[in-house]
């Protein structure tokens, strides 16, 4: 077994666009669920809209990369508004049902052949990196050390992703320690009590839905920036993965989503290298290498269940809060 390769790959994933993208999406979900109490089960839909908004406006309309990103973010904000108007008056569990359905509708719209010209239907979209890469100030070459050796383009994606993440974390952190965040947390605890104090709960929930949605779209864009936008990615299990990352780190925390995404992806990468290697070494004689690769998704599911049962506040969550979880 090539331990060095397994560990190198695992550590390399700390800086992968997937980790950064998940961290952004999980941060958006923290705004939705952790702070505003909105049970959004359609985070994959927001990520898809970000990624496709970026890809379509690059490819079909020839927008420069920064404008294409703004289109992706703007589209997700509009999606949040459309989703929010009818659903934010619903009770929490109904919101979950509606959002899961809405995310599926979004995915199917990108998948259907009706808009093949723009969406590429089942093939998805790729080859939109040109404008973004042209803006790369880093000279060609390979940089870094240890497991983190990347090309100039790979660094460019990671740096932009990290800068976005840093800004997002700062904004959410500032918001949540402001009176605005206090109102939001109040709404999470009891919406009627907050309305009785003269706050327009609907407007706050809408703001939270849009903010979280834009963050998730940013995550979707970072995730797809150097790869492709493919409808197979934005399935419901993506939503559950982001939820796992969020709950792992701590739902009502700012750094929890980061830590959660990091652990999630390092573990995922480790298992996806380690399990097939075990099969190869003859340790798991009852399964093939491909089966071993899918085993990790089963493990993720089990981990999510154990997490919610035994550690609902997450790694960074306040233990004191747990005393009062109903």
């Amino acid at each position: 077994m090539d331990w060095l390769q397994i560990f190198s790959n695992s550590l390399s994933s700390i800086l992968s666009p997937a980790t950064i993208g998940y961290a952004l999406a999980a941060l958006g979900l923290a705004v939705h669920f952790g702070y505003a109490g909105l049970l959004n089960m359609g985070i994959a839909g927001f990520m898809a809209i970000g990624a496709y908004g970026y890809a379509i406006s690059s490819l079909s309309f020839g927008f420069p990369w920064w404008l294409a990103i703004l289109v992706g973010l703007g589209a997700s904000a509009i999606f949040a508004l459309i989703l929010g108007v009818p659903t934010l008056r619903l009770r929490g569990d109904y919101l979950a049902i509606v959002t899961i359905a809405a995310a599926e509708v979004v995915r199917l719209l990108f998948l259907t052949t009706a808009f093949d010209e723009y969406t590429g239907s089942a093939d998805g979209l790729s080859g939109y990196q040109g404008s973004f890469r042209d803006a790369n100030p880093i000279p060609d070459g390979i940089y870094g050390f240890g497991p983190w050796m990347y090309t100039a383009n790979e660094w460019w994606v990671r740096i932009m992703g990290l800068v976005t993440l840093a800004i997002a974390v700062l904004v959410v952190w500032m918001l949540m320690r402001s009176p605005w965040g206090r109102v939001l947390k109040g709404i999470r605890e009891d919406e009627d009590a907050v309305r009785a104090l003269g706050k327009n709960a609907f407007a706050y929930k809408m703001q939270a839905l849009v903010l979280g949605g834009v963050l998730a779209a940013a995550g979707g864009i970072v995730y797809a920036l150097d790869r492709a936008a493919s409808p197979g990615v934005y399935v419901t299990s993506l939503t559950f993965f982001v939820w796992t990352a969020l709950l792992l780190g701590g739902a009502a925390t700012v750094f929890g989503p980061l830590l959660g995404s990091l652990i999630f992806w390092v573990l995922q990468t480790f298992l996806s290298n380690f399990l097939p290697a075990l099969v190869q070494a003859g340790v798991l004689p009852f399964m093939s290498q491909i089966q071993a690769g899918t085993l990790r998704f089963i493990l993720v599911g089990v981990a999510l269940m154990l997490l919610v049962i035994f550690m609902p506040q997450g790694i960074l969550g306040n233990k004191k809060e747990l005393t009062f979880v109903k």
Binding site: S178, P179, W180, R182, V183, K185, G186, R188, E189, D190, A193, V194, L197, G198, K199, A252, E321, F324
Partner: peptide, 20 residues
């Protein structure tokens, strides 16, 4: 509002807050 502190509960009651 259970998971807000007592003083946060109180501050939520004030009207016309710019920070909101």
């Amino acid at each position: 509002l259970g998971l807000l502190t007592v003083v946060e509960n109180m501050k939520l009651g004030a009207k016309g807050q710019r920070g909101e």
